[in-house]
């Protein structure tokens, strides 16, 4: 726990390189369906990691992450539909700015509250934005959402062309890996240590002299920013933005990913997302629309009997 950053144990980095290598070659060997599936796991994994920054590291359960994810999608759609020729980086920036603005707004109000009150307030905020998006048909397309064509994949000066499933996967993998390293750096920085100290004992952290509210606001904003990034990736992959993704169910899924995978590990929530999507895939073969019944049972059992989640036992090593 005392060693930080690149000086961490070699075992961790060997594991990191192996997993990254496997994910890099995955689209070359997997059939079409599973290629897309792995890309989706990465995107939902990014959403899960973003909420882990709050749930696992700061001890604040957010039931409103869908609003950041959804605004990332709508921001992307806005840039691709309204601003000149479709540009990937412009879309990315626009999605991030939309998510960041909403995150700043939510963070300002919600962080004044703790525990369940925070959870309820974030949930209520996401519902407010859902109602606005759902009913403001002229701008947001209402129930139908917005559809657009995929922007070309351009690396200025290096490469330009259309996205293929393989390059899209690599693009998503690169963004998610960089986000992971960024989030990992954040959680291990002095700032991240203060967040963990808030989780362990908020009163004492305040007594030491930290301005707890400011740290919480920044934590929510950072978390919202990464959730928005996940929304941007999802929008680019699927070429639409829809109000369903602002709905609280997506927030609930982000919480499920965290609980299933193991809170406070960053990698755990990604594993949780993978586990959830695999379960959904497996169960929807048997119960097409009711896969949430067995998934909900498994989730509840895990809350009661396995609160650490799948990768909780690795918590120390993953944060080393």
């Amino acid at each position: 726990m005392t060693r930080r950053g690149l000086a961490g144990p070699a075992g961790y980095w060997v594991g990191f390189v192996v997993v990254l290598g496997l994910l890099t070659v995955a689209p070359l060997v997997l059939p079409e369906f599973w290629r897309r599936f792995v890309t989706e796991i990465l995107i939902w994994g990014l959403l899960a990691m973003s909420s882990d920054l709050l749930i696992g590291y700061t001890g604040m359960v957010s039931f409103g992450h869908s609003v950041f994810f959804g605004l990332g999608m709508y921001g992307t759609a806005a840039a691709l539909l309204a601003l000149g020729p479709p540009n990937l980086w412009l879309a990315l920036a626009s999605g991030l700015v939309s998510a960041a603005v909403v995150a700043a707004f939510v963070a300002y109000f919600a962080t004044r509250l703790r525990d369940i009150y925070f959870a309820i307030t974030t949930l209520v905020f996401s519902q407010i934005f859902y109602v606005i998006i759902f009913t403001w048909t002229d701008v947001t397309g209402g129930e139908n959402g917005l559809t657009f064509s995929q922007p070309p994949f351009s690396l200025p000066g290096l490469w330009s062309g259309r996205f293929t499933p393989v390059t899209l996967h690599w693009f998503v993998l690169a963004v998610v890996t960089l986000s992971y390293l960024g989030l990992r750096r954040i959680t291990q920085s002095p700032f991240g240590m203060v967040l963990q100290s808030i989780r362990e004992n908020e009163a004492r952290t305040r007594a030491i002299g930290y301005h707890v509210e400011r740290y919480k606001i920044v934590a929510v904003m950072l978390s919202g920013l990464f959730a928005g990034l996940a929304g941007v990736l999802y929008a680019i992959q699927n070429k639409f933005a829809a109000p369903d993704f602002v709905l609280f169910l997506v927030s609930g899924e982000a919480v499920i990913f965290n609980v299933m995978g193991g809170m406070g590990t960053l990698v755990g929530p990604v594993a949780g997302a993978a586990f959830f999507l695999v379960l959904r895939e497996a169960f929807s073969r048997f119960f097409p629309e009711y896969y949430l019944i067995p998934v909900g049972v498994i989730f509840t059992l895990m809350v009661v009997f396995l609160p650490q989640g799948l990768l909780g036992f690795l918590r120390r090593r993953l944060n080393a």
Partner: peptide
Amino acid sequence: RPLLGRDPLTTILATFGISLVLQNYALW
């Protein structure tokens, strides 16, 4: 009952799981 004495937040998670099951059970 098994969650008595744990962080109150875990009860939100547990009842959230129950709500998923009940809602989809009703749909089914």
